[in-house]
């Protein structure tokens, strides 16, 4: 059984853990950087990216996360997690982990009252996926090796680049575990 870590500094940690377990893998909540060594893949959950970044710095996580990204083990960022993974951010000089070759804009659909649910058809995952967008970011530009898996309203909301997977919305808030399963399959492939 593969072990999937969930970065547990802040945000929707419990929901990802549940989704991982229901998809038949072992979940580990990552609170200290040493724990990264014991997992085969890592999910960075939704939450507040500013807060997570502060805690990442405070606990000296950044170098370990960058090493993890370079190790070839799969990484999946949802919402704030996507912001942490992107190589470039609109209106910011510096990225956070800077692993995935995408440019991301924060809060790009508006404030909370504009937050929404929509059904998406996702390449490699399936149709009618219930996607929950909460003060969501989106991918404004993607590098040539990035495979675009889903768009909403002509904006890229789900993409993959090799071992990196990122989405604007929150698969962890639904009972539909197809996306988590997709990521776990990536982890299994990488472990072989």
């Amino acid at each position: 059984m593969v072990k999937v870590g969930v970065l547990g500094l802040q945000g929707a940690v419990r929901e990802h853990v549940r989704s991982i377990e229901e998809s038949g893998a072992e979940a580990v909540v990552i609170k200290t950087k040493d724990q990264l060594e014991e997992v085969d893949g890592l999910i960075m959950p939704g939450g507040e990216s500013t807060t997570m970044r502060r805690l990442i710095d405070k606990y000296d996580f950044m170098d370990s996360l960058k090493e993890f990204a370079q190790s070839g083990k799969p990484m999946f960022g949802t919402c704030a997690g996507l912001i942490l993974m992107a190589k470039e951010l609109v209106d910011y000089d510096q990225p956070h982990i800077g692993a995935m070759d995408v440019k991301v804009e924060r809060n790009s659909f508006g404030r909370q009252r504009e937050s929404f649910e929509a059904e998406l058809d996702i390449a490699g995952v399936g149709e009618n996926y219930p996607a929950v967008f909460i003060r969501a970011p989106h991918i404004v530009a993607a590098g040539e090796n990035v495979e675009i898996l889903a768009k909403h309203d002509n904006r890229i909301v789900f993409a993959r680049e090799g071992q990196f997977l990122g989405c604007s919305f929150h698969p962890e808030l639904t009972e539909d575990h197809r996306i988590t399963q997709y990521f776990i399959n990536m982890v299994k492939e990488a472990k072989k």
């Binding site: 547990g8 500094l9 802040q10 945000g11 929707a12 940690v13 419990r14 929901e15 939704g46 939450g47 507040e48 807060t51 919402c79 704030a80 909370q112 009252r113 504009e114 937050s115 929404f116 649910e117 929509a118 929950v132 967008f133 909460i134 003060r135 929150h170 808030l173 639904t174």
Partner: peptide, 20 residues
């Protein structure tokens, strides 16, 4: 596309978990 659903409203609070 639907705004203001329970999932969207409750989900927003879920994202605040573990925070101040």
């Amino acid at each position: 596309m639907k705004t203001g659903t329970d999932r969207v409203k409750r989900g927003m609070a879920e994202m605040q978990k573990g925070g101040v």
